[in-house]
């Protein structure tokens, strides 16, 4: 009798796992198939500290000028991990713009750590909704630090393929003006740089107002990114822009930066908005 009960319970356990396992396998693999076959490769933007999800509105208008070909989706991650969506992604849009912002958008390494954890939550949810695998990224100021933290701590090449990262005035060594003094954050990022995706192309854009900084971030702090990326990613390019629009907060609207985004990130389209080969 006891053996019968044990065997029936074992079979029941197997049946439960079989039933729910079947659901899981079907759902997971359908999702994976959609992701695998998806042609969508969004450009995902992250603003710097104190900025909201509307930070890139001017830049996105310029990029969508003269013809609006890229739909815009904005996601705000609240401190409890809840996601608030606004805007939409048009059907068949192969390169939509997605802006991810954080309710807690404060500066500081501790906040950045929280922000790249929230970024992971947002990325997982975005993939679940829109089934994309390939994407490119732009981070302004601390936005670049959040992307770097995400890449080193959460990114998995099994799930995503990030091809290009462009950082605009990102202070990899915070406000340190000399490369000799490394902040804790820079040291952490350098120590984990082996986790960076090997196929990634990185463009680090620095602005100079007066040869030393862009008004806020020292050029040397932006240049410190080389210690993180060089030799760990496919390509690392350092570009410096100057002139009246090279001030830290103006960088996203700087015409040279817009040209760089158009050249390195945007897919060329024909008159109908389709990507050209």
């Amino acid at each position: 009798m006891r053996n019968k009960v044990i065997i029936i319970l074992s079979l029941l356990l197997m049946a439960i796992i079989g039933f729910f396992g079947h659901d899981w396998v079907t759902h997971t693999n359908n999702n994976q198939a959609k992701i695998q076959n998806s042609r969508m490769a969004p450009i995902i933007f992250i603003p710097g500290s104190s900025a909201t999800i509307n930070r890139f509105d001017n830049l996105l208008s310029k990029l969508n000028n003269p013809k609006s070909t890229h739909s815009i989706l904005k996601v705000q991650v609240n401190t409890d991990g809840k996601l608030v969506y606004s805007g939409h992604i048009r059907a068949n849009d192969e390169q939509p713009f997605i802006v991810i912002g954080f309710q807690n958008n404060r500066d500081g390494y501790d906040n950045i750590k929280k922000q790249y954890r929230w970024l992971n939550t947002a990325m997982t949810d975005l993939q679940e909704r829109y089934h994309f695998r390939n994407f490119q990224a732009i981070g302004h100021s601390n936005g670049g630090l959040i992307w770097t933290g995400f890449l080193e701590n959460y990114y998995s090449s099994d799930n995503f393929n990030m091809t290009t990262l462009m950082t605009l005035g990102t202070p990899y060594n915070f406000s340190e003006v000399t490369l000799a003094r490394r902040t804790v954050m820079l040291t952490d990022y350098i120590n984990k740089s082996k986790n960076l995706p090997k196929g990634l192309s990185v463009y680090s854009i620095a602005g100079t107002e007066d040869y030393t900084d862009d008004g806020i971030v020292p050029v040397q702090s932006v240049i410190a990114g080389k210690y993180i990326f060089q030799k760990h990613v496919k390509a690392y390019t350092q570009i410096t822009v100057s002139g009246s629009d090279a001030q830290h907060s103006s960088l996203p609207e700087n015409s040279e930066v817009v040209s760089l985004i158009q050249e390195y990130l945007l897919t060329k389209t024909d008159n109908t908005g389709r990507p050209t080969p």
């Binding site: 197997m14 796992i17 079989g18 396992g21 079947h22 899981w24 396998v25 079907t26 997971t28 693999n29 994976q32």
Partner: peptide
């Protein structure tokens, strides 16, 4: 198809092939 970790191997053929 991928199956979850620690799936009983008696169920792998069924779950992995549907």
């Amino acid at each position: 198809l991928s199956t979850p970790n620690t799936t009983p191997s008696t169920l792998v053929s069924f779950l992995g092939s549907n």
